[in-house]
């Protein structure tokens, strides 16, 4: 078959499989990124305002996750997490539940992402001028409103470059789920390549898809940063 026939969207072409894999990859990347941001926001606040015990525990979490290869974390969490959840359920006298590949993938990558976004967000929050927060406190603003109205909007500009990087890492880390047999883009690619023996064609095609995601995301995040930094002096924008 020619390259075009191999990549055709309808069978016997494998293009449709790649796109299905892509949909899975994006689903997991988005879910893991969201979960990571939630963990990261809580973690960053915990590291800055939490008690000493919480701070130390968070430090252990971020250090371990950032020093151990993602592949190994994924394997530990992928097998361990589902096993643990089921053991707890059985202890409680309930039935085992089935944890789908998508949920497990999101949970696993989310925990990894959470460690990185904790650090990114912590740095960004600390970069918010302290006077702004003091002023809001002096006005008697409650803590929740302070976070929503002052800290989070002001830190966004500082955080976006780091968060953009994390999103790119999230999209690429979904490829690691291929090793546990989850059919995302990379595994679909390997299946197509293995079956048709057209290794170059399919690996190149998948590379082009990942690259397109990266370039699109970079463009989007650049716009987002410009938006988040609106009203800031131009010097700050030029520094990056």
């Amino acid at each position: 078959m020619s390259t075009l026939e191999l990549l055709a969207l309808q069978p016997p072409g494998w293009g449709g499989n790649l796109l299905r894999g892509l949909a899975n990859s994006i689903q997991i990347a988005v879910g893991a990124y969201g979960l990571g941001l939630a963990i990261g926001t809580a973690g960053a606040y915990g590291k800055i305002y939490g008690g000493p015990v919480l701070r130390d525990l968070l430090e252990v979490y971020t250090t371990v996750v950032r020093a151990v290869p993602e592949l190994i974390l994924i394997l530990i969490l992928y097998f361990g997490l589902t096993d643990l959840v089921n053991q707890i359920l059985v202890e409680m006298g309930r039935d085992r539940i089935q944890i789908s590949g998508v949920i497990a993938g999101i949970a696993v990558l989310g925990v990894v992402q959470g460690a990185y976004s904790t650090e990114v967000l912590r740095g960004a929050i600390l970069a918010v001028p302290h006077g702004q927060i003091e002023a809001a406190r002096a006005m008697g603003m409650p803590a929740g409103m302070l976070a929503r109205r002052i800290t989070l909007p002001l830190m966004l500009g500082n955080a976006i470059p780091g968060l953009a990087n994390l999103w790119l890492i999230a999209t690429k880390d979904t490829a690691l789920l291929a090793v546990v047999g989850f059919s995302e883009l990379t595994l679909e690619t390997r299946q197509a390549a293995g079956t048709t023996k057209a290794y170059f064609t399919f690996f190149m095609a998948a590379g082009a898809i990942y690259l397109a995601i990266t370039l699109l995301s970079q463009w989007g995040f650049a716009r987002a940063e410009r938006w988040a930094r609106r009203g800031e002096p131009a010097v700050a924008a030029g520094a990056r």
Binding site: P11, P12, G13, W14, G16, S183, R190, Q191, T195
Partner: peptide
């Protein structure tokens, strides 16, 4: 009672013809 749900049969997704493989339509 556990068997009331569909049995989950594990298969390695890598092609192992002619026993088990996935075709282009998934």
């Amino acid at each position: 009672a556990a068997l009331a749900e569909p049995v989950k049969v594990g298969m390695a997704p890598e092609p192992y013809p002619p026993f088990a493989s996935m075709d282009a339509s998934g």
